[in-house]
């Protein structure tokens, strides 16, 4: 009996979901995603493709959109991540004491500890490479930061009793966030436009030193995301008993 009433209650919800999903599907089919609907120079995407490299100095077009044309959104997304991490941390703090205790897992094997210690520096280096070259090749601050956090996670798995400093993580996270805003304020001070890439011609296009302020922003994001995600992993591991 119980089950039937649950199914009966879910039926209208199911019907509404199917209706919305169906409408969305048909609408997306109708517009023909990716086709030119307006004169090609009026579509923002075409402008980015045509001028992105020269206007922003970044040879990675995605970066020119994410960090320059729509850099304000990226600042917002960094804030979203910050709030989510703060929120999860706060909720873990709100848990009753026994919910915060670190549970004892199996002891890591020799392969785990030794292999992990070999892999961690390589992973961290790769993460750094990804965010340092965000303006040149696929990747960037968010991706690089997450890669670095996986190195931190591996470290905690390999050495479950390792002492970590939450203070350091939280400090580097905050300073990186402030640097992002600080770089944005350089634009506001020089040209009166927040996040304006005031030295976009600096360096040689396609080389490491290029893209003006964009690589600096990606470095800040990389450090911020890396320490934020590491901090989250560290929080979730619980308090030492």
């Amino acid at each position: 009996m119980m089950e039937r009433s649950t199914i009966q209650r879910s039926l209208p919800a199911l019907a509404i979901s199917i209706l919305i999903a169906g409408t969305l599907f048909l609408a997306f089919v109708e517009i023909g995603f990716g086709e030119n609907k307006v004169d090609s120079e009026d579509a923002v995407a075409n402008r980015y493709i045509a001028n992105g490299t020269t206007e922003t100095g970044s040879s990675n077009l995605v970066t020119s959109v994410v960090v320059n044309y729509r850099g304000f959104d990226t600042l917002g997304e960094v804030t979203v991540l910050f709030l989510a991490a703060t929120g999860v941390g706060a909720m873990i703090n709100l848990l009753p004491e026994d919910g915060k205790k670190r549970s004892k897992g199996p002891k890591p094997s020799l392969i785990m500890t030794q292999g992990g210690m070999l892999a961690i520096p390589v992973i961290a280096l790769f993460g750094t490479y990804v965010f340092l070259h965000g303006h040149l090749s696929p990747g960037g601050g968010f991706q690089g930061g997450v890669i670095i956090a996986t190195a931190f996670l591996l470290y905690l798995i390999a050495k479950p009793d390792a002492k970590t400093s939450h203070r350091t993580l939280s400090l580097s996270e905050s300073l990186a966030g402030l640097s992002f805003i600080g770089i944005g304020l350089i634009g506001l001070a020089v040209s009166g436009i927040f996040l304006d890439n005031v030295i976009e011609g600096f360096g040689v296009l396609g080389e490491l030193v290029s893209g003006g302020l964009l690589p600096l922003i990606y470095i800040a994001i990389g450090i911020k995301v890396g320490s934020e995600m590491s901090g989250l992993v560290e929080k979730m591991r619980g308090d030492a008993s």
Partner: peptide, 19 residues
């Protein structure tokens, strides 16, 4: 834009100040 920038600065300052 300062309506957004100022509170963001404050938000990122909170963890530093807590330390």
């Amino acid at each position: 834009v300062l309506l957004i920038v100022i509170p963001l600065v404050a938000a990122f300052l909170v963890p530093i100040t807590s330390i």
